[in-house]
């Protein structure tokens, strides 16, 4: 074994292929930056169609993150700390949307919740609730794709956290809810934050499931990625300006999570 100090010069082949890998990701981003109409950027972003999409994207992605937080936290805890039967199956199921093509998720949502499906029809008849073509439908689609990112992040943190603190708290007479709030949660807080940011970024970028399930209605379901796709022919400058917003958000997310991913080198 060669220790850290004994590092050799990297082989030229590895360097070359590594450089190609970096170029593969960097070139399109540079292309986006150089094609941007910087002069009209502010006008493009303050255009009513753009602000509407920005506002809608912000509200739906935050709502989806909120749902992921409320539902994902207990689920992550159940998966990490209990011996419920079928945990492996549940975990696989919950992680499925991470690897499922989003458009398939959209078709699945449509099959389950369209007005002609039993469940969708029942929701509509009993509660007057229609998820297709609605902002709630956008939140549902975004939650569907974003939830796994939150659950997997928090579950991993729970597994790594030292359970003995919780056991000590229990022997001192703390109730389970208190233990969770005062001991468990502070220990995994960074992971909860990171999971929420990841889920939010994923929700913000959601396209396939949204357009398939919730359609493309201005002000109601036309989120940023849909607006980018729609504007690409009619107003390429606006499409690129909106793309820059999404790129900037991604960059900010990366910076926020730098300790987790970029290491401390």
């Amino acid at each position: 074994m060669i220790g850290r100090r004994g590092r050799r010069r990297p082989p030229i082949v590895a360097l070359a292929l590594g450089a190609v890998a970096v170029a593969l990701i960097a070139i399109p981003l540079v292309g986006l930056l150089q094609r941007a109409a910087w002069g009209s950027l502010v006008d493009d972003l303050t255009d009513p169609a753009s602000t509407e999409a920005l506002r809608l994207s912000l509200t739906t992605s935050l709502a989806a993150t909120g749902v992921a937080l409320v539902l994902g936290l207990p689920l992550a805890w159940l998966l990490a700390r209990t011996d419920l039967p079928g945990r492996a199956v549940v975990r696989a199921l919950v992680l499925l949307p991470m690897v499922l093509p989003p458009v398939v998720g959209g078709v699945a949502l449509l099959s389950a919740f369209s007005l002609r499906s039993p469940l969708g029809g029942w929701l509509h008849d009993v509660f007057g609730l229609q998820l297709t073509f609605s902002t709630a439908g956008v939140v549902l689609a975004e939650t569907f794709v974003a939830l796994p990112f939150f659950v997997i992040t928090v579950e991993a943190a729970l597994r790594q956290a030292d359970e003995r603190y919780e056991q000590v708290a229990a022997t001192l007479g703390a109730r389970p809810a208190t233990i969770f709030r005062r001991v468990t949660l502070p220990a995994i807080a960074p992971a909860v934050g990171a999971g929420a940011v990841l889920a939010w970024a994923r929700a913000l970028g959601e396209f396939g499931a949204t357009v398939t399930f919730a359609g493309n209605i201005a002000g109601r379901t036309r989120t940023l990625p849909l607006a980018v796709y729609l504007a690409l022919e009619s107003d390429p400058d606006a499409a690129i300006a909106l793309s820059l917003v999404l790129l900037a958000v991604s960059f900010v997310v990366l910076v926020a999570l730098r300790d987790r991913w970029l290491g401390r080198s």
Binding site: N216, I217, A218, G219, T221, L230
Partner: peptide, 9 residues
């Protein structure tokens, strides 16, 4: 009303 129109690509 454009708020009731879904636009297919």
């Amino acid at each position: 009303d454009e708020g009731r129109v879904t636009r297919g690509q």
